[in-house]
Write a protein that binds this DNA or RNA. Structure first.
Lengths: 110, 110
DNA sequence: ATTTAGTACCTTGCAAGACATAGTACTAAA
DNA sequence: TTTAGTACTATGTCTTGCAAGGTACTAAAT
């Protein structure tokens, strides 16, 4: 009935894009690596979420990728920020801080 | 192509529930009033979003409502938190702070 | 008395997106 | 030549935000 997990998942939505672009701004990475990094900070994302999202970001020109051989499995698709992506990320940073501010104002009011 | 508005909207998703429950924890309110309060803190929500959400929260037992006459228009549906809603809100508070922490960790890493 | 404006609540249909599930393919070790 | 591990992809479902349109009540203006 009351499903807290569901809402937590909802809260994660929307900030995923921000987090993924942030991770890529720290250096190129392939999907599995991105998932690992997100997990480190308790933001669990699964493949079925990440792959379509990366494709979307690539199609809108925010990301690019290159194939790179691996010596322990199939080749990896390394994603990187484009120049547009860099600019966009700065905007998202702002939006994020604005959101945090707005929510905190709302939930701390007494 | 690159649509920042869309992502901002995405970021708002999920925290709406938290904000609405928070507002109601400060006192009973009717939908139009809730929208006003959210607008004050820059969280713009429209009717088509709010009404179904309130109904959902009521159906899961987090909210209740009572009708109250108005002297300037039709009667108002005042929503209030149930006991379950109170408990649930505390959980959401925690989840929110965890999320903020996780995202901040991710986006400030260099 | 009828119209108009303001307030308030409700419903329908669409689109976006997260995720579960299942599948393909490559490598290396057993 | 299996088996396990890694990696990428595709499909279908479900939730949910929102635009758009609608109903209904009150009070002031015509």
């Amino acid at each position: 009935m009351v499903n807290s997990e569901n809402t937590k998942a909802q809260m994660r939505k929307g900030v995923l894009e921000l987090c993924i672009l942030s991770i890529l701004s720290q250096g190129d990475a392939y999907p599995t690596e991105i998932i690992e990094k997100l997990k480190e900070t308790k933001l669990v994302v699964v493949e079925g979420t990440l792959y379509p999202l990366l494709t979307r970001l690539k199609n809108t020109g925010l990301l690019n990728y290159r194939w790179e051989e691996s010596n322990s499995g199939p080749p990896r698709k390394y994603y990187m920020l484009t120049e547009i992506g860099e600019t966009y990320l700065k905007e998202l940073h702002l939006s994020w801080y604005e959101l945090v501010d707005a929510v905190n104002k709302t939930i701390t009011k007494k």
